[in-house]
């Protein structure tokens, strides 16, 4: 059993993802903001399932809740669900081709969005106008190959395992 190393790479990638999820976007793109945190988390769960799991997802989600100013626990819940499904699927995910992985990512982030909107309708009594809330899942799935290649490069370059 080798000593785990490179935790700062994981932490930094998650911090950058959180930053990207509050960086201002033009109004026409507001609905299409990719779920950066979920994307990065899915990558780390698949790559290092023995280190990044539901607990890390929960803590990350809590941080994201605080930064985004939403109900405490909302992202913690949805990201834990994503991490759980990721932990169940990681062996299959590693075998898949890029576009197949993107398909799974679409479903995972769709679930993430769905849980988020459930909590929001619970706490804010807002009507969801359309299926527009699934748009981030589509955009994230399209971005998945790029994010995966980038994070894999980081993981190999800094020897995170």
């Amino acid at each position: 059993m080798t000593r785990p190393r490179g935790i700062w790479v994981i932490a930094l990638s998650i911090a950058v993802a959180i930053w990207l999820s509050i960086v201002p976007m033009p109004a026409w793109a507001a609905w299409a903001r990719p779920e950066w945190v979920a994307l990065v988390l899915i990558y780390w769960v698949i790559a290092l399932p023995h280190r990044v799991g539901i607990l890390s997802a929960w803590a990350t989600g809590l941080l994201l809740d605080v930064v985004e100013g939403v109900t405490l626990g909302q992202n913690a819940l949805s990201l834990s669900v994503v991490a759980y499904v990721g932990l169940v699927l990681y062996q299959r995910m590693r075998m898949y081709a890029g576009w197949q992985q993107a398909g799974i990512v679409f479903v995972l982030i769709g679930v993430h969005q769905l849980v988020n909107y459930w909590v929001q309708t619970l706490t804010h009594a807002q009507v969801v106008p359309s299926l527009l809330f699934l748009l981030p899942a589509l955009v994230s799935a399209l971005l998945w190959p790029t994010v995966m290649v980038l994070l894999r490069y980081c993981r190999r370059r800094f020897q995170v395992y």
Binding site: W58, T71, L72, L77, S80, V81
Partner: peptide, 24 residues
């Protein structure tokens, strides 16, 4: 179990005023 903790936090949003202070 963590999911339950998250749900409790969300429920606390309705029930418990002190949570706001923790949040801030």
């Amino acid at each position: 179990m963590l999911g339950v903790a998250a749900l409790l936090l969300i429920a606390g949003h309705f029930r418990w005023e002190g949570l706001e202070r923790v949040e801030s």
